[in-house]
């Protein structure tokens, strides 16, 4: 049983979370090729060791978080919110190629 520290809720059991895959992948833009998008979805490194990944505290506060975990030992080095909190008053940016 992994024990994961949700930045909002504290240390909780693994079964409150769901796994969301590699957090370091850069999502291609609308201008990128089908090949780039296919790689983004299908090609993974599967490292033996440190891995930065997304988890969702799905049976908790529902935050998506970034977890640095060792895939060999399950050691967890750090957890952080996936979403940087926008400073008050900052205007959200609009759309992607719309």
């Amino acid at each position: 049983m992994l024990r994961i520290e949700c930045p909002w809720c504290g240390v909780r059991n693994e079964d409150e979370f769901s796994y969301g895959g590699d957090a370091t992948l850069e999502r291609p833009s609308d201008d990128d090729s089908i090949e780039a998008w296919s790689r983004f979805v299908h090609t993974r490194k599967n490292p033996a060791g440190k891995h930065t990944e997304h988890w969702q505290h799905v049976n908790g506060c529902r935050a998506w978080i970034v977890v640095e975990r060792n895939t060999l030992t399950h050691e967890i080095y750090s957890t952080a919110p996936a979403s940087p909190i926008l400073p008050a008053g900052k205007k959200s940016t609009r759309g992607l190629n719309t």
């Binding site: 969301g20 957090a23 997304h54 799905v58 529902r62 998506w64 996936a82 926008l86 205007k91 959200s92």
Partner: peptide, 15 residues
């Protein structure tokens, strides 16, 4: 969950 993923990790700028 799908919506939360995109809102929190991909497009946090969307209000």
């Amino acid at each position: 969950s799908h919506m939360e993923y995109y809102h929190q990790t991909v497009w946090p700028e969307l209000d």
